[in-house]
Amino acid sequence: MIPSAAVPRAASCLLENAWVCPEYLSSRRSELVDAVVAHLQITVVSVVVGALVALPLALLARRVRGLRPVVLGASTALYTVPSLALFSLLLPFTGLSRTTVVVGLVLYSLTVLVRTVLTGLEGVPEEVRDAARGMGFAPSALLWRVELPLALPVVVSGLRVATVSTVALTTVGTIVGNGGLGDLVYDGLRTDFRAEVLTASVLCVALALALDAVLLVAGRLLVPWRRGVA
């Protein structure tokens, strides 16, 4: 008697098309996990590649005075391009693939990352640089062992902004079939499935906040001399 009463109630949230539905969570767990993993991969790859591209661009902008406004202007202008248009314009080059989404997200991350890396490096006091040079630091050692560590708090704050935006923007990648949790949102729209849409949306925001927290903690651990300040 108890099972017969329990089964319809458990299934009913699916039948009623309820927003919150534990039955959906349990029956589609693997689908949800796959989407979260895909979303995480797209985001992490995009931000890491974005940072690797932003660093040389920022160094170039710092080294060659004339290029500074060009690099900053171009990377800042990228944010003006609507994501749906950007992913579409990449289509002839990279097709309906995850690469299309990652390339687009890397371009967006540059808007924030180039500026923050540059700001961070320019914030290093000139006396510190002089002292390091006086101690015999070569230019590359000066960069890696003095300037970048000192720029780290600013760079980490930029990485946090870039990461949170990237998690949200990844959903639009569903237009080329690679939107991570966005694919579930789109599927839920087409099949009028509220639990799928709400669950994927909430997971997406949770993922953004979780990655933000991870970077916040990592930043504090990496910069022990500023603990309690940043």
Partner: peptide
């Protein structure tokens, strides 16, 4: 900060349903 974390696409779909 919250607006940055919330996907515009998700909000559009949530309102549509």
């Amino acid at each position: 900060n919250l607006a940055r974390a919330v996907p515009t696409f998700a909000v559009l779909v949530l309102l549509a349903l």
